[in-house]
C-alpha cells in the first residue's frame, strides 16, 4: 500500500513537471499538443474509491492549471474524466480481476490496456478542447486539434507504459 502511495506521488509530481515544462510547449504543426498527465488517472488502482479518484483528479488538474495559467480548464476536464473512469473501467477491465491492481500491460493485457488508455485519453483531450468556448468557431481546426493531440498523446502514454512495465519485469 505504501509502495503504491509513494509510486503514485512520484508519478504525480513528475507528470505535472513534464507536462508544464515540456509537453505543453510542444505544438506539432501548430495543432497537436501532447497531454500526458492523463497517465496518472489511467494508472490509479482499480478499486480506489470513487471519491478518492475524483479528489486526485481535481488535484492534478488544478496543479496543471496553476502552473500553466489556465485556471479551471484542466481541472474541469480531469474531474469529468475521473468521474467517468469508473464506468470505463467496468467496460475494459478483465472480469476475473480480484486484487486491487494497477492497470498495466501485465494486469489488463496489452490489447485491453490499449483500449482503456486510448478511451480515457480521447475523452480527456476532447473535453479539454471543447471547454474552450471559442473552439467551435472553426470546426475543422477543432477536430484537427483533437485528432493530432490524441495521436501524439497516446503514443507517448504507450511509450511510458512500455518503460513502466519493462521496469516491472
Amino acid at each position: 500500500m505504501t509502495k503504491i502511495f509513494v509510486r503514485q506521488s512520484i508519478m504525480f509530481v513528475s507528470l505535472v513537471f513534464l507536462q508544464v515544462c515540456l509537453f505543453s510547449r510542444i505544438h506539432v504543426f501548430g495543432v497537436a499538443t501532447p497531454v500526458v498527465y492523463t497517465y496518472f488517472l489511467i494508472k490509479l488502482p482499480v478499486k480506489l474509491s470513487r471519491n478518492a479518484v475524483l479528489f486526485l483528479a481535481a488535484l492534478i488538474g488544478l496543479s496543471i492549471d496553476i502552473f500553466g495559467y489556465t485556471l479551471g480548464l484542466n481541472m474541469l476536464a480531469t474531474i469529468i474524466v475521473g468521474f467517468m473512469r469508473y464506468m470505463l473501467l467496468r467496460l475494459f477491465k478483465p472480469r476475473d480481476l480480484i486484487d486491487n491492481v494497477i492497470p498495466s500491460f501485465g494486469t489488463f493485457g496489452r490489447n485491453m490496456f490499449f483500449r482503456y488508455a486510448g478511451t480515457v485519453t480521447l475523452l480527456h483531450i476532447t473535453l479539454l478542447f471543447a471547454i474552450d468556448v471559442n473552439a467551435f468557431l472553426v470546426p475543422s481546426l477543432f477536430i484537427l486539434r483533437i485528432a493530432g493531440s490524441f495521436i501524439i498523446s497516446s503514443l507517448i502514454i504507450y511509450g511510458l507504459e512500455m518503460i513502466y512495465s519493462g521496469k516491472g519485469n
Binding site: N51, M75, I131
Partner: peptide
C-alpha cells in the same frame, strides 16, 4: 461521489 462531483465541477467552472 455524485455530491463531490458536482461540487468540484461547480468550483472549477467558477474558476474558469
Amino acid at each position: 461521489h455524485w455530491l463531490l462531483f458536482f461540487a468540484l465541477i461547480y468550483f472549477s467552472a467558477w474558476l474558469l
